[in-house]
Design a protein around this nucleic acid. Structure first.
Length: 571
DNA sequence: GCCGTTTTCGGCCCGACTGTTTTCAGTCG
């Protein structure tokens, strides 16, 4: 049996969908995408479904896709996909990523001009061949050239942590307009997804033209993609697409619900509406027979009329939230106000840019009761790791800061490195005097799942370890998570009372939302830390809390919601 | 290819916008 992740299987199916779309096949692409989407967000390993012969229990997976998944698990390959691939040049699929070009246009360009790569497309556009083809013109040729530039420059999704402030700023500028009566961010940014494709903003306005003019002339706007009376799209810095929609007041709630998604959440919701002989759209919840509007102005009413508890945006991923809302079983999600401190930040002692005192004052300003200083230890020379002697010196400095400041307690800690054998780079004599020991992996990412899991489990046998830092090691857009059996880590954490970190750094958000969802099955604490390297970064806590909310975590699951004395006991 | 208190066949979300075409097709979300 080959080693394949849920994500890998989903990618096989996504590719089939793309190729079938190029082929002009109807409906099947959607079926494959739907199945792929559901597989990629399963909380369990797909191999458990395979072993129990229950692949068809996965929504969107029927007989045919189940067979294909079995083949992938058993052989690591899929004959059907290999055959499909032969029909099209590999690079054609890649071209689907270019904005504005879909399967129809691409096939036409391929058939008429033999264009099968981005470079060839660029050449044809430059030599004015494309405008000769029916359905294309000078403008589309220009657009193609422009979109090729963007495609080359930006291929990645945006990290929530960096886009959220920009989106909030634009939201604020718009909300200051007299013509704007209601405004809300929607889409994946409202669900606080770790990466987002674009920003959606909805407004109710007395003067749509004026709002659209203002929006398309914002300082941040580099290009106006489209401008209408109900919808405009602009491109801001770094190729960030922002949509603004002007909605009628009476439909604002249903539009907000609709544009917040996720897609699969909405599909399920619509189904419930249909069961009641209603239809749900961006315009409202409407009785199919009388055309009477049942709800629409406020989002909460829609959930209520459908017989559901209100579902927080972060939960709307079709991971069981609708079923829970029907039964009144939704979790009481953790909130920013529940956070009493941050247990993992850096200072000038290693790679941080502020002193212990500066960090402590900032933390106090945020309303925290405690702050854990966990600089790197000696192995991480690249990050100015501290020697044992320096650790002792830092402990003295922390004492002084504690004497000086009221209302906040600074805890001394370390971020120790787990080496290839699972040993830490700090001696036990030093560790025993520290309040917090974060143990994390910073190298050797390529080890097998078994080795990696063993390394961490071995580190957890060290009696002084209190937190396992960024447990999967992923870096969004940069590095895949390392192979690790989280179930075993969770079991050990439960046994030893060790916290699992949810690292709030925008690139990390690790433990992931799905990881949190799984961790709920264990009697353990998550510690939401920022890993701040400067005092501004303490604000990343919001991202960690959002991720925890996406992972259904409640206040009781999170260690740093405890008051200082309770926390001290847990440590 | 999936799905089903309209269930084993026949649907599958649909509206806004753009560009080209003079009434609509393609793309996007």
């Amino acid at each position: 049996m080959s080693h394949v992740s849920n994500k890998k299987i989903a990618n096989f199916l996504f590719e089939i969908a793309d190729l079938l779309e190029l082929k002009g096949v109807q409906f099947k692409p959607r079926a494959y995408r739907n199945a792929a989407q559901n597989i990629s967000t399963l909380s369990k390993d797909i191999k458990t479904y395979y072993q129990e012969k229950k692949l068809q229990d996965i929504e969107g997976v029927g007989e045919s896709i189940a067979e294909k998944v079995e083949e992938i698990i058993e052989t690591g390959e899929l004959e059907y996909l290999n055959e499909l691939r032969k029909k099209f040049p590999e690079t054609l699929q890649e071209m689907m990523k270019i904005q504005g070009l879909g399967p129809k246009s691409l096939m036409k360009l391929y058939e008429e001009l033999g264009i099968k790569s981005v470079d060839e497309l660029e050449k044809a556009a430059k030599s004015e061949q494309i405008r000769e083809i029916e359905g294309f013109g000078e403008t589309s040729e220009q657009n193609i050239l422009e979109n090729i530039q963007r495609y080359r420059k930006y291929q990645e999704r945006f990290l929530l942590g960096y886009i959220l402030p920009i989106a909030k700023d634009i939201e604020k500028q718009l909300s200051n307009l007299n013509e704007v009566e209601r405004i809300n961010l929607a889409g994946s940014i409202r669900r606080r997804k770790e990466t987002i494709g674009d920003v959606d903003i909805l407004v109710v306005s007395t003067d749509s033209d004026k709002v659209m003019d203002f929006f398309t002339n914002l300082d941040q706007v580099e290009k106006v993609v489209s401008k209408g009376t109900t919808k405009s799209t602009v491109i801001a810095q770094e190729n960030l697409h922002i949509d603004l929609r002007v909605i009628e007041e009476e439909s604002f709630g249903s539009a907000l619900q609709y544009f917040t998604g996720s897609k699969s959440h909405n599909i399920k919701l619509r189904k419930i509406a249909l069961d009641n002989d209603w239809k749900l759209s961006e315009y409202g919840l409407i009785d199919k027979h009388t055309n009477e509007k049942i709800a629409g102005e406020n989002e909460k009413d829609i959930y209520e009329k459908l017989g559901l508890d209100y579902i927080q945006p972060e939960l709307r991923e079709d991971r069981g939230e609708i079923e829970a809302a029907l039964k009144g079983n939704l979790p009481n999600l953790i909130k920013m106000e529940d956070i009493k401190g941050d247990l993992h930040v850096h200072t000038k002692w290693s790679e941080g840019s502020h002193t212990v005192e500066e960090m402590a004052i900032e933390a106090k300003n945020l309303g925290y009761k405690y702050l854990g200083i966990c600089d790197h230890a000696k192995i991480l020379q690249i990050a100015k790791g501290m020697s044992d002697k320096e650790i002792r010196e830092q402990m003295k400095e922390i004492e002084k800061v504690n004497d000086k400041l009221d209302g906040i307690t600074v805890l001394s800690g370390i971020e120790a490195n787990i080496d290839s054998d699972g040993k830490l780079d700090v001696k036990k004599e030093v560790l025993k005097d520290l309040d917090i020991v974060v143990a994390s992996i910073h190298s050797g990412f390529k080890s097998s799942e078994k080795e990696m899991t063993n390394r961490i489990i071995t580190a957890m046998q060290n009696d002084y370890v209190t937190i396992i830092g960024h447990p999967t090691g992923r870096k969004l857009n940069k590095r895949e998570p390392y192979e690790v059996n989280l179930t075993k880590i969770f079991e050990e954490a439960e046994k030893k009372g060790i916290f699992i970190e949810l690292n709030s750094f925008p690139e990390r958000l690790d433990l992931t939302d799905l990881g949190c969802l799984n961790a709920r099955d264990y009697d353990l604490f998550i510690s939401i830390n920022t890993d701040s390297h400067s005092k501004d970064q303490l604000r990343f806590m919001e991202l960690g809390v959002s991720t925890a909310r996406r992972g259904w975590l409640e206040k009781k699951n999170v260690a740093n919601t405890k008051n200082f004395n309770e926390l001290k006991k847990l440590l």
